[in-house]
Design a protein around this nucleic acid. Sequence first.
DNA 1: TATCTTTGACCAAACGTTCAATCAAAAGTA
DNA 2: TACTTTTGATTGAACGTTTGGTCAAAGATA
Lengths: 198, 198
Amino acid sequence: MSPRTEEQYEEIRHEKRVLIMNTALELFAMHGYENTTISQIAKKAGISKGLLYNYFESKEYLLEAILNKGMDEVLEIFDPNKDGVLETYEMEFFINEIFKTVEKNRVFWRLYMAISLQPSVFKLVEKRIEELYEPMMQLMLGYFKNAGSANPFMDAIIFNSLLDGITLDYILKPDIFPIEDIKKELIHRFCIHKKTVS
Amino acid sequence: MSPRTEEQYEEIRHEKRVLIMNTALELFAMHGYENTTISQIAKKAGISKGLLYNYFESKEYLLEAILNKGMDEVLEIFDPNKDGVLETYEMEFFINEIFKTVEKNRVFWRLYMAISLQPSVFKLVEKRIEELYEPMMQLMLGYFKNAGSANPFMDAIIFNSLLDGITLDYILKPDIFPIEDIKKELIHRFCIHKKTVS
DNA sequence: TATCTTTGACCAAACGTTCAATCAAAAGTA
DNA sequence: TACTTTTGATTGAACGTTTGGTCAAAGATA
């Protein structure tokens, strides 16, 4: 009946979808969303312009799909069944996980930050950001409370800003930013000197 | 001969230039550079499209002028005749100055960060960034050395990232980010506990 | 009148998007 | 094996819209 089995079609579609999304992510992150044309994406992916529209309804839906996929991957950090309290050794694991994600998804973070800074497109990530920010802050609050901080709320916000700043600087200058050393330093400051943070 | 004196023309031109630049800055920062049209800028500024091109050669030159002016204002922080060493009380003054600049030029910082994240336009600010980064790092290095830090280089980088992160978070959520409290906390941590930073 | 500012209709280029036509491969047929 | 049918993936010229940029003409003032 059918020239190909449903599984075969499924695989073709999936592969092309991923190809388009990865290609677009790289271009969006490097040249900006508005500054990247559909033609550029199609050319770099080695397909036609029309095929892209067979997989994604519009340029904006393509961006949305990329952002959602990236956020899903990032949110996996919070996956393990936590009880809400971070012990010192867990904090070390957590910092490691964050840095691993930042280094692995460098290109995605660049796009994500650029989008965040553009209110007119910001709505596309707004809700997902809450998903990320909420558990992050809860975890940090719990940790600093547990560590005997005088002002856990302030400590959590500052730690969060520090991570944001490190991510930003690393994204902007990945070749010269000493991210490995910084990670060790953070672990040293926040995990070894238990209960004496400040 | 001439309908107006040279001074009169000078003032007209200067006022219009400033008007256009301020209007464009706001739109660029809010909707992004690529996403803002010349027509929008002209309309919001209450002038015609043609007049804008009487003052700025192109959209990109307009952006460049805005960025340069903003950077000039920011660089004024480093203006006072420093000897290169920051004493503790000077550090407090310095932090205050930085926060003042960030709060005053919030819109500019938003544009500046968005541009920095976009390599294809990044060349417009690349050189000015060095002008900002270089003295900043020197100042911080000197301070942490003077404060008896075990690793002044690492401390300087981390402090710099922290400031970047605070700026970013404040820009993204100016209404709920407790920037005043954070400023006080930073001063408390880095200025009062002299020589015991870590 | 002379001179500079200001206008907005106009233009070519570039963009996102569409769609009728083509292609490639598996299944059926003999 | 050789040929036909069938299906969904794939193509790219064409379309309408929007954009940055131009320019001849009008406005304003001493």
